[in-house]
């Protein structure tokens, strides 16, 4: 995309680290601690889902049939593909193919955008039928407990969508820095860490898809 080759910049190890390796390892432990925190954050929603499904099994089956599993499947495929393009962006930067890495980052960003557009159409189709969260629910339905399912649906997919949007911002930041030549085989910590975050967002969706759309 750039006519001129990107000029790579030397990375200065922060003064409180002995070596670049120590710096990288510290960042990685911090990132995994954050990922563990994210898992726990989403776990509250999964426990709420398990409890509510246990109490209202028939309503959950009815409610999940109101969601389009085809859209869910499409978005699952989009996210898995974006995880692949993300891991390739990390791999390419490790072998100093910076331009290729940037292209993979742009592909990841585009796929994230596709995911959000599909999500937008899913939400608006639900809103147009009067399906909102909890007390704002005004649709017709077979169960008076339906707002419980859709409360979980909107909060879980909404928080997941928020993570996608934050990830898109982080990927844009990576693209801008990569263009300046700040990432290369000697220093790619931010690319690797955003990659880990992106895969976590994928993992959350791997559980949300069957629980909300299929079961």
């Amino acid at each position: 995309m750039n006519a001129q080759p990107i000029e790579l910049k030397k990375h200065e190890v922060a003064h409180h680290f002995e070596t670049a390796e120590q710096e990288f390892d510290a960042a990685k432990i911090g990132m995994w601690a954050f990922i563990a925190q994210e898992v726990l954050f989403f776990s509250a929603l999964f426990v709420a889902y398990a409890v509510m499904r246990f109490l209202h099994p028939d309503m959950f089956i009815n409610a999940s049939s109101m969601l389009s599993w085809k859209m869910g499947l499409f978005n699952t495929t989009v996210l898995i593909t974006s995880s692949f393009t993300m891991v390739m962006a990390v791999q390419r930067v490790q072998v100093n193919k910076i331009a290729q890495s940037i292209n993979y980052l742009i592909a990841t960003l585009g796929l994230a955008g596709v995911f959000m557009v599909v999500k937008y159409f899913e939400y608006t189709s639900k809103f147009s039928h009067g399906i909102f969260t909890t007390k704002f629910f005004v649709a017709e339905g077979a169960f008076e407990t339906l707002p419980i399912f859709f409360g979980l649906y909107f909060v879980a997919t909404g928080l997941h969508g928020l993570h996608i949007v934050i990830g898109m911002g982080l990927i844009i930041w990576l693209i801008l820095r990569a263009r300046k030549g700040e990432f290369h085989s000697e220093y790619f910590t931010p690319v690797e860490m955003v990659g880990l975050y992106w895969h976590l967002v994928d993992i959350v969706w791997i559980f949300l898809f069957p629980l909300l759309y299929l079961l």
């Binding site: 109101m66 039928h129 005004v138 649709a139 169960f143 008076e144 707002p147």
Partner: peptide, 19 residues
Amino acid sequence: KSPVKLVEPGALHHGETSK
């Protein structure tokens, strides 16, 4: 108080028509 307007199960389909 539930805000749901109750109808018969299977009387309406907002998503897929058959599961």
